[in-house]
C-alpha cells in the first residue's frame, strides 16, 4: 500500500494501488477510457508483470523493491508538436528527486532515461492521447530502481546501490517526494518557462558537449551532443557535420 500526502496541488492526491498488474500504463489507459479521472491520479503496483519500455521492450523490476507507477496529467495547454517540453519537465522532475540523495554523477540520457554515470537507474514511458493538435491526456509511466541491489545486467543500478544506504528506502516516502518534484516542474511548464526548463535539461544531459562514440546506420562515429531541436531531436556533431537525429537513428555506445 502507498499512503502518501505529497505537498502538491493535485499530483499524487489520488493513488490507485494494485498489488500486482501487467502494466500501470495500460491500467491508466483503461481508467481514462471508462471514467472521469482527476489530473494527478497515480496508478501504482508492487509487482508489474508486463511493464513496457521502448516499443516492444520490457521493463523488469523486482517485487516491492522499486517504484513502478503511472501518473495521469492533462496538459491540454500544450500543442502536440510541443510535447518534448513535457518530456523535459518530467525528466527534470525525476532528476531533481534523485538529486536530493545523490550529489554528482546523475544525468538524463536523451530522451528520458535516468543515469548514474554509465548505469541506468530509471526510465520513463510517456503515452499521450491526442484530440486534433492538442494533448488530451498524458500517461507518464515511471520505473525507478530504489532498493534493488542485485541486477542481472551490469548496466543497471539503483538509488540504494549508489548511495550505499544501509537501510531500505521507504517507497511511500520516495513516491511522495517524487510527486512534489514532478509537479514543481510541471507547473513551470504550465507557466511557460520553456527556455529555463530546456536550459536545465541540457545542463544535466548525459554526455552533453563531450566527445563519445555513436552508432548511426551501423557505422561508428565520434561525436558530441550540441543540443536538442524543437521536436526533441538530438543535435550531434560528427566528422560528417552537424545533424539532427530522431530516437531510432542514433545509438549511444556506452
Amino acid at each position: 500500500m502507498y499512503k502518501i500526502q505529497p505537498k502538491t496541488l493535485f499530483t499524487g492526491k489520488n493513488v490507485k494501488y494494485l498489488s500486482t498488474c501487467h502494466s500501470t500504463n495500460d491500467i491508466a489507459v483503461e481508467m481514462i477510457q471508462s471514467e472521469a479521472v482527476s489530473e494527478g491520479t497515480v496508478v501504482i503496483t508492487d509487482n508489474q508483470t508486463a511493464g513496457r519500455g521502448q516499443r516492444g521492450n520490457t521493463w523488469l523490476a523486482s517485487e516491492k523493491q522499486n517504484l513502478t507507477f503511472s501518473l495521469i496529467w492533462k496538459p491540454t495547454f500544450l500543442k502536440a508538436s510541443q510535447q518534448f517540453q513535457l518530456n523535459i519537465a518530467i525528466s527534470l522532475g525525476v532528476f531533481d528527486f534523485l538529486r536530493t540523495y545523490i550529489d554528482e554523477g546523475l544525468a538524463v540520457k536523451w530522451s528520458n532515461d535516468l543515469y548514474f554515470r554509465n548505469q541506468k537507474m530509471g526510465g520513463i514511458l510517456i503515452e499521450n492521447t491526442l484530440q486534433g493538435y492538442t494533448i488530451e491526456y498524458s500517461i507518464i509511466g515511471i520505473g525507478l530502481n530504489i532498493n534493488q541491489v542485485e541486477f542481472p545486467l551490469p548496466t543497471a543500478t539503483s538509488l540504494r546501490k549508489v548511495t550505499g544506504n544501509p537501510q531500505q528506502y521507504d517507497l511511500s516516502d520516495c513516491l511522495s517526494k517524487l510527486m512534489e518534484h514532478l509537479e514543481h516542474n510541471y507547473l513551470l511548464l504550465k507557466e511557460g518557462y520553456y527556455d529555463t526548463l530546456k536550459a536545465r535539461y541540457l545542463t544535466h544531459l548525459f554526455r552533453y558537449q563531450e566527445w563519445h562514440e555513436y552508432r548511426i546506420e551501423s557505422q561508428i562515429y565520434t561525436g558530441q551532443i550540441l543540443g536538442i531541436d524543437e521536436h526533441g531531436r538530438l543535435a550531434l556533431e560528427t566528422s560528417e557535420g552537424l545533424n539532427y537525429y530522431g530516437f531510432k537513428e542514433v545509438e549511444f555506445i556506452i
Binding site: 502536440a80 518530456n87 530522451s111 528520458n112 499521450n128 492521447t129 491526442l130 488530451e136
Partner: peptide, 18 residues
C-alpha cells in the same frame, strides 16, 4: 477511436479519429 500511434523521441501518441 484510436487509428494509429505516432512515436516522437520515445513519446507515444495515440491519434484519435475526430
Amino acid at each position: 477511436k484510436t487509428v494509429c500511434i505516432i512515436e516522437a523521441m520515445k513519446l507515444f501518441n495515440e491519434i484519435e479519429s475526430e
